[in-house]
């Protein structure tokens, strides 16, 4: 299983990346219980921030951005984690996914995570991230994990929630793998069909 992790954390290290890593570890562990191996690639969006902006304003696609977008399309599952700013996902996170064509994530299991400075952002995943992935027709897993500053303290249920989310992703991935992607440059719609359409 090819798992692509997208982290939109900004500092080094960021709590967003920490959450992404822990979610991924949990998913990989549970995939192991299903006798599935996983290969994990992590993309830090901060490294692509300028490339994403260049693409938006000038159509210019850097090779690194091209690779990341191709990987979104080919990955078996995504673990995506964004910081929550002013009540919703970070601008960088949204800008990156704005570059993903609607068909490229169709049917791909996606585990959603977010971090924030206050527990009052805890539903931001549900009203911000999940609708966007619904538009992209991704298969978001039921459990999402929001980690506020308090959650990184001692008496938190964060570990339990992370474990449950990892189990969810593994179960969905095993039960409902993403559909095969059709390469539009390989399997072209014949012209007779285009004419008839």
């Amino acid at each position: 299983m090819d798992i692509l992790v997208i982290s939109a954390g900004l500092s080094q290290p960021s709590s967003t990346r920490m959450l992404a890593d822990r979610l991924t570890d949990a998913a990989v562990r549970h995939l192991g219980n299903h006798d599935q191996d996983a290969e994990v690639t992590t993309v830090e969006l901060r490294d692509l921030a300028i490339d994403v902006t260049n693409k938006l304003v000038s159509q210019y696609t850097s090779p690194a951005l091209e690779r990341a977008l191709a990987h979104v399309r080919s990955a078996d599952a995504l673990v995506v984690v964004s910081p929550i700013f002013n009540g919703s996902m970070s601008g960088l996170f949204k800008m990156f996914f704005d570059l993903v064509p609607p068909d490229d994530l169709a049917g791909t299991p996606v585990l959603l995570g977010a971090t924030g400075g206050t527990p009052r952002h805890s539903l931001a995943i549900e009203h911000g991230l999940r609708p966007m992935f619904a538009y992209l027709r991704a298969l978001t897993v039921p459990t999402s994990v929001y980690a506020a500053t308090d959650d990184w303290g001692a008496d938190s249920t964060l570990g339990v929630r992370i474990d449950r989310a990892g189990a969810d992703l593994a179960a969905v991935l095993v039960r409902s793998p993403r559909p095969e992607r059709v390469d539009p440059y390989e399997e072209v719609t014949p012209f007779s069909t285009l004419l008839g359409g």
């Binding site: 159509q59 696609t61 012209f191």
Partner: peptide
């Protein structure tokens, strides 16, 4: 658009790829 490449091929017309903004792989 792959559909336009298909259209050009169907008629045996020319195909002009204005490649000035995008990497060659595309």
């Amino acid at each position: 658009s792959p559909e336009i490449a298909e259209q050009a091929a169907y008629y045996g017309d020319g195909f002009f790829a204005n490649n000035i903004f995008w990497p060659k792989e595309h």
